[in-house]
Design a protein around this nucleic acid. Structure first.
Lengths: 128, 128
DNA sequence: CTTGACCCTCCAGTGACTGGAATCCTTATC
DNA sequence: GATAAGGATTCCAGTCACTGGAGGGTCAAG
């Protein structure tokens, strides 16, 4: 498989796949012409990475998860730890964003949104 | 005021304040020794920026908001537009993160987290 | 005069790509 | 055999909003 095929299969842009090779997440073979040659296991790994990234795991988490995946002697506790930690970060982020949203909602609600200069949003940002 | 004072007043790191000067958000005067000299209006602007950033506005949004703030002939509609657009982006982000959280929660819930290798989290990531 | 707390500039790095230039390889068509 | 399109390669630079660090100048106190 060339990079275009595996890109289509996994939904990852070719650029991203090259980047993943750069940082050592995959190691496709090379054809005599210099083209990358992806085997099924490579495509499989890339699909794994795509799904882990879609769940918001960092590249370093993905590296860890991939290593655990390939380790037949792993403990599921190790996987769970990574996932739980990530889950907490997501929950923190959601809480942060919700706080922003609530404040913004209130400010937007109070703003007339007309052609006069008076604006509670700016007033709030400029409060002493 | 030197940069340390204004940093303490606004809660922004000195590095960040220098960066804001670099990108033209503030233009403090200079003392003969080369030190930045911040007037109250500069400190006030920086506090404004700090609050806008805390609400998640991008630097470019901050630039726009600051310009509107300083324009006595602004229309509050312009401010409201910026804020509403940002609010929508935050809401989208929250929805994304909640979807991730729900999936992760389910996966974590199903994982025994013991010393056996069998793991539904990896199984899900590796699904064909 | 020294010490320590400030301040300065400039450069490089972060995360995870993404865009673009310049070039090479393959395949199909004329 | 020439040519053109499409896909592959590398390498460099840019994104966003800082942040860290090196190497040096300035100031106030003791």
């Amino acid at each position: 498989m060339n990079i275009g095929d595996v890109s289509e299969r996994t939904g990852l842009p070719a650029k991203t796949i090259r980047y993943y090779e750069d940082i050592g997440l995959v190691r496709p073979a090379r054809d005599t012409n210099g083209y990358r040659v992806f085997r099924d296991t490579d495509a499989h790994k890339l699909a794994f990475l795509g799904r882990a990234r879609a769940l918001g795991f960092s590249i370093e988490d993905c590296r860890t998860l991939l290593a655990l995946y390939e380790d037949d002697d792993r403990a599921s506790a190790d996987v769970k730890r990574v996932a739980t930690e990530h889950l907490h970060q997501i929950e923190d982020k959601i809480a942060q964003l919700q706080a922003m949203r609530d404040t913004l909602n209130e400010l937007v609600r109070c703003c007339a949104g007309d052609n006069r200069p008076d604006c509670p949003i700016l007033k709030d940002l400029a409060r002493q």
